[in-house]
């Protein structure tokens, strides 16, 4: 899949419920972290990764759709911790240009 489209066109968006699972997923899709299961484990994709509740995503989503699909979970999840975890992975794996 990652080879099918230009890498700069692709974005991975997560819906994980905890900071730890978000970090592990984000690592998997950026560095191919092999320690966790999943469809993408073991492949180094180097794709940009965000959580759906991060402001960078949320601000672009239709407010009505966001309200219906995500707002309740945003109230329930520790979104600040999740955002920190995913941001941390983005920062540490920023491609050298």
């Amino acid at each position: 899949m990652a080879e099918q489209y230009p890498r700069e066109d692709m974005v991975v968006v997560l819906g994980t419920p905890t900071a730890e699972s978000s970090r592990l997923y984000a690592l998997t899709v950026t560095e191919g972290d092999p320690s966790w299961a999943g469809a993408l484990a073991g492949t180094s994709l180097g794709l940009p990764v965000y959580h759906v509740t991060e402001e960078a995503i949320k601000c672009q989503v239709s407010p009505e759709v966001y309200e219906e699909q995500v707002t309740l979970m945003e109230m329930v999840l520790d979104v600040a911790d999740i955002a920190d975890a995913v941001q941390g992975v983005r920062d540490s794996s920023a491609p050298a240009v």
Partner: peptide, 25 residues
């Protein structure tokens, strides 16, 4: 215009919900 890989989780936000959000963008 981006191509999205939506990786949802049952106890968080499901893939379909992420798909609807990103499609709306």
């Amino acid at each position: 215009g981006k191509k999205i890989i939506a990786l949802g989780e049952r106890d968080g936000i499901q893939g379909g919900a992420i798909a609807q959000c990103t499609a709306s963008a």
